[in-house]
Computed example of a mutant assay.
Amino acid sequence: MFGESVERLNRFVALLAEQGVERGLIGPREIERIWDRHVLNSAVVGELVPEGAHVVDVGSGGGFPGVPLALARPDISITLLESMARRVQWLEEVLDELSLENADVLRGRAEDKAVRAELGAVDVVTARAVAPLGRLAQWCLPLLRTGGLLLAVKGASVAEEIARDEAIVEKAGGESIDVVQCGVDVLEVPATVVVIEAAPRSVRSRKGRRRRR
C-alpha cells in the first residue's frame, strides 16, 4: 500500500507514539492501535480518491486521514486544514520530518470565507471524526468543484446519521449520498466512508438562497 514511503510511515507512527499523548493528539489507549485504527483506516480512503486529485483534509488534527493518505498516494496533493495552533505546529513538524512534498498545512476552518477563497474548488474533501454529517456537509461542500467528493469516515451508527441529516445534506448541495466500505482486503474492520457528491455550484447557490429566506 505504501511502497517506497513505508519508512516514512514508520517514522510517522513512531512520532505519534512518542509525542501523541503528550501533545493531545491521541489518547493513551490509542498507542497500541495506531496502525489499524488510525493509519491503515486512513490510508484505505485512497481507494475512493481519483488520480491526481487535489484533496483538502478538514480538521486534520494529528494528521488523519491526510498524512497516511499522502504517503500512500504520492500522485495526489493534500492540504491539511486545521484551526488549532498547536496542531498546526505538529502537522508542520511532521511534513518537515517526513519530507512530504505533496502535502501542505493551512490554518483555518472550512467555513471561513478566506479559506474558501484561498482553496478555490477542489476535487476531494476528507474528514474523520470532525462533526455530524449535516454540519460537515454545510462546511465542506462549498469547497468542492461540481462533481467533487466529500469523503467522511464514519462509525457504526452511520445509517442513523444519514437518516437524520439527509435533508440537510441535500440543502447544502449534496447530489448523492453513498456508504462504501474501504480496505475490505486489508483491515479486519473496514473503514466506513460516506461519499457525498457535490451538485453543480449554480444549484448549490440557489439552494442556499432558498435556505436563507
Rank of each mutant, 00 (worst) to 15 (best):
V6A: 05
V6T: 15
V6F: 15
E7S: 14
L9V: 14
N10W: 08
F12P: 11
F12T: 10
A14K: 12
A17R: 12
A17W: 05
A17K: 06
G20S: 05
G20L: 04
G20P: 02
V21H: 06
R23F: 07
G24D: 00
G24V: 06
G24C: 10
L25M: 15
P28S: 04
P28F: 01
E32W: 01
E32M: 03
R33L: 02
D36P: 01
V44C: 01
V44A: 03
V45C: 02
V45K: 08
P50Y: 12
A53W: 06
A53D: 02
A53R: 03
V55F: 13
D57S: 08
V58A: 15
G59Y: 06
S60Q: 13
G61L: 12
G62M: 07
P65W: 07
G66E: 04
G66P: 10
G66L: 06
V67D: 08
A70E: 01
A70V: 03
A72W: 09
A72E: 03
A72K: 10
R73I: 08
S77G: 04
I78H: 00
I78T: 11
T79C: 08
L81M: 05
L81Q: 07
L81V: 02
A85Q: 06
R86M: 15
R87K: 15
W90Q: 08
L91V: 05
E92Q: 03
E93D: 03
V94W: 02
L95M: 14
L95H: 15
L98K: 14
E101H: 15
V105Y: 09
R107C: 12
R109Q: 10
A110R: 04
E111V: 14
D112F: 12
A114H: 00
V115N: 10
E118V: 00
L119C: 10
L119Q: 00
A121K: 15
V122Q: 07
D123I: 07
D123S: 01
V124A: 00
V125P: 11
A127Q: 10
A127L: 05
A129Y: 04
A131S: 05
L133G: 11
L136F: 09
L141M: 03
L141E: 08
G147S: 10
G147D: 03
G148T: 09
L150N: 12
L150V: 07
L150Y: 11
A152N: 02
G155M: 14
G155T: 13
S157E: 02
V158A: 14
A159V: 08
R164N: 09
R164V: 06
D165A: 10
E166K: 13
A167Q: 06
A167I: 01
A167S: 13
E170R: 03
K171L: 00
A172E: 11
G174V: 03
E175R: 11
E175S: 13
E175A: 15
I177R: 05
D178I: 05
D178R: 12
V180L: 05
C182Y: 13
G183S: 06
L187K: 07
P190Y: 03
P190K: 12
T192R: 09
I196E: 10
S202C: 01
S202K: 05
V203Y: 05
R206K: 04
R206A: 05
G208D: 11
R213T: 04
